[in-house]
């Protein structure tokens, strides 16, 4: 843990030093290069701002309406506990839409069931092995004006579901 924390604290500074030093050694005008790149990053972010507003509002509305929770409780009836832990269904579902909302749910599970319980551990593993599918897809596709995503949603769902079941399995092995 100490080492990991050390690593996570130092990896970015090391990266920065490495890049700048490498640039200097290669006799590059590092500051001018930096400015050119920074301008590039600036325009990229400005380009996705409208997309981000549209999406975050949509997710916010859906979450506040209680629809996501309703959907999760319906799924809980459809999917028996021995296939998929009922307590973790809302978490898995909401993780596909919003990272911050699912973090809230994760901490809730830690409080409710204990951080080192099977449920707590499974939830933590699920969160680290899945991604906010719909958010990621929208940002990436909308940034280049793609409207037909073909099989991407299906593929993303398939690998996420595989990851979720793998999480349940590996958590039990621990």
């Amino acid at each position: 843990m100490q080492f990991l924390l050390f690593l996570s604290e130092t990896i970015i500074p090391i990266f920065i030093v490495w890049i700048v030093a490498y640039g200097l050694v290669s006799h590059r005008p590092v500051y001018e290069d930096f400015i050119v790149g920074a301008k590039d990053g600036f325009t990229t972010v400005l380009g996705i701002l409208p997309t981000l507003i549209g999406l975050m509002v949509a997710v916010g509305v859906l979450r506040a309406s209680g629809f996501l929770n309703m959907l999760a409780s319906i799924l809980a009836v459809l999917v028996p506990d021995w296939i998929f832990p009922t307590e973790l269904l809302p978490l898995s579902l909401i993780k596909m839409f919003s990272s911050s909302a699912s973090t809230g749910l994760l901490l809730d599970i830690f409080k409710e069931h204990g951080v080192d319980s099977l449920l707590g551990r499974t939830a933590a593993i699920m969160m680290s092995s899945t991604e906010t599918i719909f958010y990621t897809l929208s940002v990436y596709f909308m940034s280049v004006n793609i409207k037909k995503s073909r099989y991407t949603v299906v593929g993303a769902l398939v690998c996420t579901i595989a990851g979720l079941f793998a999480s349940i399995y590996f958590a039990q092995l621990m």
Binding site: Y22, G23, S26, D33, G37, A38, G41, F42, T44, L46
Partner: peptide, 20 residues
Amino acid sequence: MLGVMSFWMGLMKIAENAGM
């Protein structure tokens, strides 16, 4: 993100131009 991304893309430009 404007700050973080501009900073990161600036660094990446150095890395790119230096052949890293």
